[in-house]
Structures are given as structure tokens and as C-alpha cells.
Design a protein around this nucleic acid. Structure first.
Lengths: 162, 162
DNA sequence: CCGATATACTTTATGCTTAAAGTAATTGGA
DNA sequence: TCCAATTACTTTAAGCATAAAGTATATCGG
């Protein structure tokens, strides 16, 4: 593996922003490693993708369905992006779209029964993969990391440029 | 912003793997928010991309240059991916490629003087953007988060499936 | 020396992602 | 009422990402 960013032992003489930079590099690195495994697992075991899972997960939480705007905001992806992913899931009959009676520009998308069943299988496997990835990371550290990341997310939302 | 994953207050009755899942969702969410800002900044202010910056950063750390394999391993991206990015940077004269005298299959890629100069500008802006993103996150939390992420990365490397 | 295998890299096919332009429906002001 | 601005969504162009197949070189056993 790549250990090149585990060097630089002296934090004291670091220039302004160096801690931030190391923090960011480490955060992104961890996310990429786990994401890579999940993506490979989704592909190999279910012939699907992480983005498709994300869409189904968002819809599974919304009993009455969501329109495209709400979906793209929930997933932090662009508006046009959701269009293609939703179409594929529709073609597989995992999603159904009904027109919004209030606003004919908008359609409300929801999981079909087949979609709900399929998502339950995917979610169970996904949960296990994440648990496997974090298996060697101590429980105490997990709780502390979760707390810190929650604070980080809150601090990021303050000056939200999105 | 989306607060849907800040609910579920009782951790005790959570099923196995629920903490892991929340930790992973939070980790990915933070990474995506920051990455999005950086990508937009690179595009708007320098008409370039984060992957191109990553390639230049890897080469800036390697005084004697790197071949494609070392580059893709350092960046955690696939082999074929680096090809296109390197070609673009070569077309802009930020990178130069010389044949490896030991192995004619391989070429060694390095920053040109123009590339070094350009990278210095990019890196300075990048450092500032990251510092801005983390501006509201307390210094103590930063240090603790860095420590935990370093541990997490180490624990991920143990059972490395890559 | 020579053929089989391995390695380094590129190409191809497919899919995600964005920004920007385009379409259609809604809303609000004259 | 009617038309201008806004909103919801789709399409398009360009770029990043992967896996898998293809090309060229290197290495190793005989």
C-alpha cells in the first residue's frame, strides 16, 4: 500500500494549513478505499452500482416517493445525473414514476414492490460489507470518529456554498 | 441541507452494523462536500480538475518522476485512467515523458519547469480552500480526527483486497 | 536461443458526474 | 388576460472511473 503520507513527523513547525491538508488527504483516502470495495462488491455480486443503490436507499426512506429535485438534493448529485440512473432502475422495474397531480412538470418516483424486495437484499449485503471494512477498527474509536465527523459535517454546513 | 441521517437517537438498540453504517455515511458525506467545493474551485479559478491536480501533486513529490504504474498506485486509480490525464497534461506542456532506459515498455513521467510553476500556484490555492473548508472546525477536533483517521486507514490496510 | 509467461501500458466499452443549454409547465405582475 | 420570469426536468458535451481486451517488451525455463 501507499504509505507516502504517513511521514512528516513534526507537526509543530508546520506552515498554516498543513494540518488541514493532512486531515483532508486522510479523510479522502479512507473514503476512497471503502468506496472502492463497495463498488466492486456491488458489481461482482449484484451486477449493479453504488449510485443505483444510493437512489434506491433514498427512495426506501421516503414512503411516498420523491421527485427528481428532492432526489438529487438528498444524494448531493447534480440534477441531470439522476435522470439516467432513474431511467435504468425504471427499465428494471425497480422504480415507478407517477405524475405529480399538483405540478405537471414534476413526476414522483417510488420503489415498486420488486424494488423494495431487491433493495432489502442489497442493503443487507451493503451493511455487511461496511461492517467487514470496519472490523479491525476498535468500537471506541468508531464512536469517537462518528462524533467528530458529525461535528465536522455541522461545521461544513455553516458556510455552505452549494 | 439534508439532515435525514441525523436522526435515530438511540444507539443502544441498534442492530449489528448500524454504527458502522452511520460512520460510513458520515465519512462519505463529509468527503463529498469538500471534494465538491474543491472541484468547483479548480474549474472556475484555474480551468482544471482535481484528478489533474492529483497527478501533478504525486509528481511534485517525486523529484525523478514516476512511471505510469507507480502513478496509478499512488493515486488509487486504475491503470488505464492515468493514461488520458497524463496525455492532457503533456499537451499543456506541464509534463514530460522520457523512456525508461532499463525497460522500454515503461516511460518515466515528470513535471516540466512550467509544470512545477503551475503546480505551485495550484497547490497554494488548494491549501487555502481546504483551510477555508475546515475553518469552523476546532483545532482540537482537527487533531483528534486526524489521529482517528490515521488509525482507520491503518486498520483498512490490514485486510486489503485491492 | 526460443517459446511461454509475465509485466507495463494503451485502448475500448460502459457508466457516473458536472455544467450548460434546451423544453415544458407554473407563477406572478402589468 | 397575457407575457415574462421562474422552476422542474432532460439532453448534451466533456471528463473521470473501471474492467477487460489488446500491444509491446521483458523474463525465465528448457
Amino acid at each position: 500500500m501507499d504509505d507516502s503520507d504517513d511521514l512528516e513527523p513534526d507537526n509543530r513547525a508546520a506552515p498554516a494549513g498543513a494540518i488541514d491538508l493532512r486531515l483532508w488527504v486522510r479523510l479522502l483516502g479512507c473514503a476512497k478505499i471503502i468506496e472502492k470495495r463497495l463498488r466492486r462488491n456491488f458489481q461482482e455480486q449484484f451486477d449493479t452500482t453504488l449510485p443505483r443503490f444510493d437512489v434506491m436507499a433514498a427512495l426506501d426512506r421516503a414512503a411516498d416517493g420523491l421527485n427528481m429535485g428532492a432526489l438529487s438534493r438528498a444524494l448531493l448529485v447534480s440534477n441531470g445525473n439522476v435522470t439516467a440512473i432513474v431511467r435504468q432502475l425504471q427499465d428494471q422495474n425497480f422504480l415507478a414514476s407517477r405524475p405529480d397531480p399538483q405540478d405537471r412538470r414534476s413526476a414522483i418516483v417510488a420503489l415498486t414492490p420488486a424494488g423494495k424486495a431487491h433493495f432489502a437484499t442489497l442493503a443487507s449485503a451493503h451493511r455487511q460489507w461496511v461492517a467487514d471494512a470496519l472490523h479491525d477498527f476498535p468500537r471506541d474509536d468508531q464512536n469517537q470518529l462518528l462524533m467528530l465527523l458529525t461535528r465536522l459535517k455541522a461545521s461544513l454546513s455553516k458556510d455552505d456554498v452549494s
